[in-house]
């Protein structure tokens, strides 16, 4: 029996708590989306998408642990790297127009 299958309280396992936490983070993502849509400045949007990306990494890591799928961590890593790239590209675009790369 793996760690995530151990019962914590009232028949709920660690896996259940991780899944519930992941669902909570997805709900938070909708809130972050509000900032990305509303703005008002472009910096708000860049920050919102950056936080969304970090949020996605956390969700993927939790899902990977809860469902015993270690390969999810690979995708989480790719996202962590790309998230940084996206934030830098959009920031550079807003500061010096024309310079993206």
């Amino acid at each position: 029996m793996s760690f995530v299958e151990t019962t914590v309280v009232a028949g709920y396992t660690v896996s259940d708590f991780l899944l519930a936490a992941a669902a909570g983070f997805v709900v938070l993502a909708v809130g972050m989306l509000y900032r990305a849509v509303k703005g008002p400045t472009m910096q708000d949007r860049v920050l919102a998408v950056n936080v969304l990306g970090t949020n996605t990494v956390v969700i993927l890591a939790m899902l990977g642990a809860a469902l015993s799928e270690p390969t999810f961590l690979d995708i989480a890593l790719i996202y962590a790297l790309l998230n940084f790239l996206m934030a830098v590209a959009i920031s550079k675009f807003t500061v010096e127009r024309g310079g993206v790369l």
């Binding site: 990305a36 849509v37 703005g39 472009m42 949007r45 959009i90 675009f93 807003t94």
Partner: peptide
């Protein structure tokens, strides 16, 4: 358009 690009990333 820039807002659309950013939200498309999300």
């Amino acid at each position: 358009v820039l807002a659309a690009v950013i939200v498309f990333g999300a």
